[in-house]
Structures are given as C-alpha cells and as structure tokens.
Nucleic acid binder design. Structure first.
Lengths: 135, 135
DNA sequence: GCCCCGGCGTTACGTTATTACGTATGTAGC
DNA sequence: GCTACATACGTAATAACGTAACGCCGGGGC
C-alpha cells in the first residue's frame, strides 16, 4: 500500500509510531508512555529513544511549542520539504503543511548571513476555522 | 535615551528584563532565578510571572526550541512584526530578524484555511558564519 | 570464538513549569 | 473612611518534561 519509506522499525519504534498514528494528533512523551504500559513500557527513556529515531527518519515531528510529538501527515512520508504546523488553541487540532515559498525566503536570509541551516521550526498558534465563532 | 515603549515595569519585571538585557543572549527561567537570588528572588514563579508580562509587552521573546527567553533586540521595542530567530548550535548565539515576506506568505496560508493567527514561532537551528569552519 | 555496535531495560536524577493558597497594595465607587 | 475589586507578590508543593549512567542482549563481521 505504501511505498518503502523507512528503515525497518524496531518493536519499540513501531509501538510508538502506532500510538501517534492512532491518536491522529499530538501526544506528549509521557502520554505515549501511559498508552504503552500494557505493551511493556516502563520508563520515559524507552519512549524518547524511539521518538529520537522516528524524528530522525522524518516519520514524526516534534512540536516545540507543545512539547509534544505528532506523526507526519504525509502518506508514506516520502520526501518533502520543511513542515510547518498550525495549532488550534481551542480544539487542539494540528494541521501540517509545507510552506515552500516561505522557507525559500528564510533560506535567502540564512544564505545572506552565512548561516548553515540544519533544522527549522515553524509553528502557528491560533484558532482553526471550525473553532472560530461564526456569528 | 530610549523612547517610551512599555507600561511601567514592576520591580520584579525590571529585574528580570535587566538580567536578560545584560546577558545579551538567551537565559532559562532557572538561570534568571539564580542570577536574581541576591535581589531576593526565591522561587521559579517569581521569574515566570515576570516573563509572562514581558513577553506580553513584546519586550522578551520565548525560544521554544531552547526553553529559554531572550530580550527583544529592537531598540526600545517599538512596533515591529513577527520575529524569527537563528540559533547557532555551536556557540549559542541567537540572531533575531523580521521575516516580513515569509510571514506574509504564512498569513496567506492561514487566510485560505480560515485560521485565525495569534502567535507565530519561527526558529532556525544551525551554524553561524563565525562557527562554520572556514577552511 | 571474539569483538563491536545498536537497541533495550532500569534506576536515578536533573530541568522546566504550574497549582494552590495567602498576603500586600492600588484604585474606583460610595 | 470604607468596601470591592484587580494586580502583583511570596511561598510551598508538585507536576511535567527530559537525560545520565549502568549493564544486558543479540546479530554481523572476521
């Protein structure tokens, strides 16, 4: 169904990724830990180690302003640019998108400054269309 | 020397802002607490309360990816757009800039989605010109 | 067999942030 | 003056987030 996209996951990595996929939204590391207690998880480090790898593989993103993690919304997580996130402060829904043009402008700035970019965080906080009171 | 820019700060707010200004770079809340023990600070909450106000006034920015705070680099903190930050992972230097064009594109996205934007986080991690090995 | 390495499990600890409660001070209305 | 209210403050306790250090295990290369 999905193209081959990631280096085979270990059991723990698969469990953590499964939790995030099933959740369909952001989870904190400790929330994941609680979800996986029945699967044998006992300590935060088990979660963090798996998350580190999943982030490295690009299958999971870290939301810095939430101290939480979310499964990448791209099917199969094939190659794609830097992700940005819109986070609704009312309902908690997170929308991922790929602001290529904006990134290009940010990269222009880094080039002019001689700054070697390794990672970009773009997070928008606000209210989603559903939650914006319509009347 | 500086134009009138902020609603008079309370003693604690002034102390915290002074610490950040003097530091010339990011500090964590607990680092500020340690700096201000001699001034009578005893508990984290004293720092966090002051920081909340300073951020609200736009005089201090929170760096989400660092869990730290930095004084706004605009003199007098007069009106300005959303700030972005380039953080050198080698030397820790933080450069603030105002990516108006990129923000405009991000706002285009929010408008098309009906997302009401309240706050934007843009943080670039990488290596600054000084720290990039030149040979 | 032997070594190395990546992943794993566990304990303990460090760091960051908040909840809850009570006190002090200023100001507006009466 | 007095009350009512809002804002700031002080303190203690605790919650939430993240990491260091240790040792074990299993698989691959030689």
């Amino acid at each position: 169904m999905s193209v081959e996209t990631h280096p085979d996951l270990t059991k723990n990595q698969a469990l953590v990724f499964g939790s995030l996929s099933d959740a369909g939204g952001p989870l904190t590391a400790y929330a994941i830990l609680d979800l996986l207690r029945d699967s044998g998880f006992r300590a935060p480090l088990q979660v963090y180690r798996a998350l580190d790898k999943l982030v490295e593989y690009g299958m999971v993103h870290r939301l810095e302003s939430l101290n939480a993690f979310v499964a990448c919304s791209h099917k199969g997580c094939s190659s794609h640019g830097t992700a940005a996130f819109a986070i609704c402060e009312k309902c908690g829904v997170v929308s991922e998108f790929t602001p290529d043009k904006a990134m290009s402008l940010l990269r222009d700035w880094t080039k002019s400054e001689g700054f070697q970019l390794s990672r970009t965080t773009i997070e928008l906080r606000g209210t989603c269309r559903q939650c914006a009171v319509p009347n």
